[in-house]
Simulated assay, not measured.
Amino acid sequence: MHTIFEAIIIGIVEGLTEFLPVSSTGHMILAQSLLNTENDQVMKTFDFVIQLGAIMAVVIIYWKRILSLFGLVKRKSESRTGKKLNLLHILIGILPAGVIGLKFSHVVDEKLFNTTTVLVGLVLGGILLIIAEKKKAQSSTMVLDDLTYRQAFFIGLWQLVSIWPGFSRSGSTIAGGMLSGVSRAASADFTFIMAIPIMFGASGVYFLKNYDALSSTDLPFFAVGFIVAFIVALLAVVSFIKFVQNMKLTYFAYYRFAVAIVFGLYMFLK
C-alpha cells in the first residue's frame, strides 16, 4: 500500500525536475528506491500521472501560444519574416517518439525502469549534453517561430533516446536542437510545448493499459501526487525555463555525473 507521504515526496521531485535536463523519470525512480516503495504497476502508473500534473504547468505558461496553434488566439510573430510555429511543427516533432514509444513501451516498462539503467542514462545523457554544448552548430534559428520542419523532425529524432530512463526528454531535445542550429532558448521552448501532447498521450495510453491494476483506494495517492507535482512545477516553471534557456548544458551534465556517482556508491555500499 502506497502512502500519502510517498506521493508528496515523489510529487515534489517530479515538479522540480520536469523542466530541467536531468531526467525527471530517472529522479523519480531513484527517489522511489530510497523510499523503498514497491515497484508495481500502481507506482509506474502514478509516475505518468504526476508527470501530467507537472506538464499542466506548461499549459498555463504557454496557453496563448498553444491556443494560437489552433487559430483560437491571434499572436504577433517573433520572427522577422513573419513566420509562426504551427501544429505541423509539433506533429513532426512528436511523430518519431510517438511511433517508437508505443511499439516498445512494454520493453521499457519491463526492462528499463530500475536504478541501474537510470544511472547509465544519467551518465550517457550528461555526455550528450557536453557534446551538444561543445559541438553546437551556429544558431540560424534564434526564436521559436523561425523553427523549420526539418529542425522539428531532427529534434523529434533526438527525443527517441529519452525513452531510456535517465536520459531526459528535455535534455535530449534541447541538445538535438542546438546540434541542428536552433538556439538554446528556442530549443527549450519547443521542448516544453512538444512535451504536452507527448505526456498527455503517454499518460492516457499507460492508464488505459493498466487501469485494472488500480483500485479506489489508490485515488488519494494519485490525487495528492498530481496536485503536489502541479503546484511545485507551477511555482518553479518560470524561473526554471529561463534558467534552462540561458545556462550552459555542461553544468547540468556535471550535476548528472555527481548524482550517478553518489547513488552508485550508495548502491554499492548498501
Rank of each mutant, 00 (worst) to 15 (best):
Q32E: 05
Y211C: 12
K135A: 15
G171C: 01
G15W: 03
D47L: 15
V99C: 08
T141H: 14
A260C: 10
V107H: 11
D109L: 12
M43E: 09
V13K: 03
L102C: 04
I4C: 10
G156F: 03
I12K: 04
S105K: 12
V49M: 14
L72H: 01
L34V: 14
I196A: 00
I61N: 00
P197V: 03
K76C: 13
Q41M: 11
F207E: 03
N210S: 11
L147T: 05
D146S: 03
I4W: 07
G166E: 01
G11H: 09
V99M: 09
T17C: 05
K136Y: 00
A175H: 06
K103I: 14
L124K: 14
F257H: 07
A57D: 00
E133L: 02
S140K: 14
Q151I: 04
I198S: 02
K242W: 01
K134F: 13
V120H: 07
G177A: 07
K270A: 09
S183Y: 04
M199Y: 11
L91C: 12
T148H: 08
S168A: 02
T45E: 09
I12W: 00
G26Q: 10
S216R: 13
E38F: 13
L34C: 11
T17W: 08
Y149E: 04
L95C: 07
L122T: 07
S216Q: 05
S203M: 08
M56D: 08
D145H: 02
F48W: 04
R80P: 15
N114K: 12
A97G: 13
V108K: 09
L52W: 03
F46T: 00
I198F: 05
L249A: 12
G101Q: 11
T45A: 10
S168P: 07
I127T: 08
V259P: 15
V22H: 06
A175M: 03
S239F: 15
I50K: 06
F46A: 00
I12F: 05
A137G: 12
D40E: 01
K111L: 15
T3L: 13
I55E: 02
S172G: 00
Y149P: 04
I61M: 12
L219W: 04
A195Q: 13
Y266E: 13
Q245P: 00
F230H: 00
T141W: 10
K209P: 05
L128K: 15
S215L: 06
L157I: 15
V228C: 00
L129S: 15
L144Y: 05
G171L: 01
I227T: 05
V224A: 05
M1T: 11
I50A: 04
F154M: 08
Q138K: 14
L67V: 08
P220A: 01
Q245N: 04
F48I: 13
F222C: 01
N86L: 08
S140C: 12
V49F: 10
L35P: 04
T17Y: 09
E110L: 10
V58I: 11
F257W: 10
L122C: 02
A175C: 10
D109S: 12
G125I: 03
I130N: 13
L144F: 08
L67F: 14
L128Y: 15
A31L: 06
A260S: 12
G176S: 00
L249T: 10
N39E: 03
L124Q: 13
I227S: 07
I127Y: 01
